[in-house]
Amino acid sequence: MTIALPAVLDTPAAAALRQTLRDAMAAGGPVTLDASAVERIGQACLQVLAAAEAAAEDAELDFRIVGASPVFADMATLAALDTLIAA
């Protein structure tokens, strides 16, 4: 399942992102997130993504973030969460 991440992933967007990721995990298939449209992202959403990455690992699901936009890649690197974009 490929999910396109929205442009704005600020703190208020974190709850919806968490729900989306939970639903995707519950569906059981590999999860691919398209981060090409992300223009803004903060800690709240990054930590939800990190939690999802950990959850996928536990559930042995394939979890990938693809096409990271410059902002996404920049912020993930800044927060030393490069594992999110390493795959």
Binding site: A14, A15, L46, Q47, A50, A51, A54
Partner: peptide
């Protein structure tokens, strides 16, 4: 990330990192 809870338990508006 030691404080980071599971995706189920995470409070989206709380900081963990």
């Amino acid at each position: 990330r030691a404080e980071l809870p599971t995706l189920e338990a995470i409070e989206p508006e709380c900081g963990y990192l």
